[in-house]
C-alpha cells in the first residue's frame, strides 16, 4: 500500500464530482480527487495515486519516468496494479 502510482485522468464524473476515471497501465478505475480540489484537475492530467486517492498532480514526463521505475520493481508493482484493478470505489 506504500506505493504511489501515476495515472492519467480520462474522464470527470459530473454526477460524482469527488471522483474521476483514471487509467493506470491500461486499467481504468475511479479514483477520489478530493485532495486536489484546489488544483482543478481535468482529463489529460497526470496524478499520483495512493490507496485510491489522487495525492498530487504531476507532469507527464515525471509520470512516464516513474512508471518505468515502477515496472522495474516487478512483483511489488504487479501486486499494486492487481489491487488497483480489484478496486471498485464509489
Amino acid at each position: 500500500m506504500c506505493l504511489a502510482i501515476p495515472g492519467q485522468i480520462m474522464e470527470m464524473l459530473p454526477e460524482r464530482p469527488h471522483l474521476a476515471l483514471v487509467e493506470v497501465s491500461g486499467v481504468r478505475r475511479s479514483v477520489n480527487i478530493m485532495m486536489l480540489a484546489d488544483e482543478a484537475v481535468k482529463p489529460g492530467d497526470w496524478v499520483l495515486i495512493h490507496v485510491g486517492f489522487a495525492l498530487a498532480k504531476i507532469d507527464e514526463q515525471e509520470a512516464k519516468a516513474s512508471l518505468a521505475l515502477l515496472a522495474a520493481l516487478g512483483q511489488a508493482y504487479a501486486d499494486e496494479l492487481k489491487a488497483f484493478e480489484d478496486s471498485r470505489i464509489e
Partner: peptide, 13 residues
C-alpha cells in the same frame, strides 16, 4: 484485503 479505505466503505454498504 482492500486496496483503498473506500473499498472498505463499499464492503460496509
Amino acid at each position: 484485503m482492500v486496496y483503498s479505505p473506500l473499498d472498505a466503505l463499499k464492503v460496509a454498504r
